[in-house]
Amino acid sequence: MNTLSVRTLFFGVYAELASSREGVAEMPSGSTVGDLVDTLRGSRGLDWLPERVVVAVNQSYAEIGTQLADGDEVALIPPVAGG
């Protein structure tokens, strides 16, 4: 089966809870943002990821159904608090 590899980024409280700021995830070709989130949530130490997590792909906010491509940068965005 063909796979794709994406870089995952964690910020703020997510980085704290994950004890990590970034990682790499291998997914089957054709996977979506939602598939990646489900996979992450099922992995050790990330089961706390909220039901409706906000995600950015390559530095733009992305829908849960967005298809991933090899080499994408996928950031999990905690509730923002700028200003």
């Binding site: 704290e16 706390w48 909220p50 965005i77 923002v80 200003g83």
Partner: peptide, 30 residues
């Protein structure tokens, strides 16, 4: 900016504790 900018605020309190603003950590805490 407050709704969209991917920026997070880590508040440090006088009592020594700290908290990520907006983080629903009561139901997030592993």
């Amino acid at each position: 900016v407050k709704a969209r900018l991917p920026i997070w605020k880590h508040e440090h309190y006088v009592d020594g504790e700290s908290h990520w603003v907006g983080a629903p950590d009561s139901n997030l805490a592993p």
